Computed example of a mutant assay.
Amino acid sequence: MPRTPFAAVIAFAVLAFSTPTFAQTTIFNVSYDVTRELYKEINPAFEADWKAKSGEAVTVKQSHGGSSKQALSVLNGLEADVVTMNQSPDIDVIADKGIIAKDWRDRFPFKASPYTTTTVFVVRKGNPKAIKDWDDLTKKGLQVIVPNPKTSGNGRYTYLSAWGYSLQKGGDAAAAKDFVTRLFANVPVLDGGGRGATTTFTQNQIGDVLITFESEALALAREIGEDKFDIVYPSISIEAEPPVAVVDSVVDRRGTRKQATAYLEFLFSPQGQEIIANRDFRPRDAEVAAKHASRFPALKTFTVEGLLGGWEKAQKEHFGEGGVFDQIFQK
């Protein structure tokens, strides 16, 4: 049997020890509940992109639930490398405890919000209750399905959309409170999150109208069937800007800051933005947005910052203990 030359053995050994090897890295994304399908597509795309760029294998795991409930889980010790929530208060409440840096908005473009969406109505096919705008949701006998604003960012956007609609019509705070009170009087059940509300409406067949994010409504039409539901765009709605952040205390302890940061940066890349658009969220990238413009109807919108004094004020006034929502719900 021929022997391998000694020089070749030495060369092989040197090559083996000099070739970089990488351990498998796992990062954990804690997100809100209507982004399951989005991140099921984002995660493998990022994993492949990161492998090609760095040579390192990375796996992204994810968790979904009501946005505010997810934030509470992180506060209670759930080790998220990144959080991808649907409203900034759910990241601020984590930052207030020092788990996320206070400047999290400044670390990524668009105040760390890779896409937008808005609030729309989903009705039974043919719109048998003739629902066209927010006023129709206060009709007696109508059942409106919406998640709980105390646990769900989706629910908070719905509540604030209705409040802002009343203000935009010329009403004051008292008129807005009366309007939202009449709307929530038509809500038979408050689910913990947006996906739970969707299940109540579609599978349990409860309610005449589901108020939810446009992304969820478009996904319903595509995945369950356009023959079962219609989407109604109200005359005015809220612009939601779901934010993202690296969880500093976790990534520094686990040594995953580089991968976690790259993961969130991928959301703003052309490839990430294309996936975002295909999953029915409105992309930030101008070229990608122009390509998909026909899928997202023009809509008059307002923001929490522009009309309602910002999230800090809205959170305290409407959703804090004993706030306006508590008063309405008790009534």
Rank of each mutant, 00 (worst) to 15 (best):
P2K: 11
P5R: 10
A7S: 11
I10M: 12
A11G: 02
V14H: 03
T21S: 10
F22T: 00
V34P: 09
T35R: 15
E37A: 15
E41V: 13
E41S: 14
S54T: 15
G55F: 03
T59D: 08
G66M: 10
S67N: 08
S68M: 12
K69W: 05
Q70I: 13
S73W: 07
G77A: 06
D81T: 00
P89R: 09
D90T: 15
I91A: 11
Y115P: 05
T116S: 14
T118R: 05
V120W: 04
A130S: 08
W134T: 07
W134G: 04
L137Q: 07
K139W: 10
Q143G: 08
I145V: 12
N148H: 09
N154K: 01
N154C: 12
Y159N: 05
L160F: 05
S166E: 11
Q168R: 13
A174I: 06
A174W: 09
A185W: 06
V187R: 00
G193S: 14
T202R: 14
Q203V: 09
Q205H: 13
G207I: 04
T212G: 10
A217Y: 13
A219F: 15
E226K: 15
I231C: 11
P234W: 01
S235H: 06
I236T: 08
P243T: 11
V247A: 03
V247P: 00
D248Y: 10
S249K: 13
S249I: 11
V250L: 07
V251E: 03
G255P: 00
T261C: 01
L267V: 07
N278H: 12
R279T: 06
D280P: 00
F281I: 01
R284D: 09
E287G: 14
R295D: 15
A298C: 01
V304W: 01
V304C: 06
L307F: 06
W311C: 03
E312F: 13
K313Q: 09
K313E: 06
A314M: 05
G320R: 08
E321W: 03
E321Y: 13
G322S: 02
G323N: 04
G323W: 05
F325Q: 02
Q327Y: 07
Q330L: 12
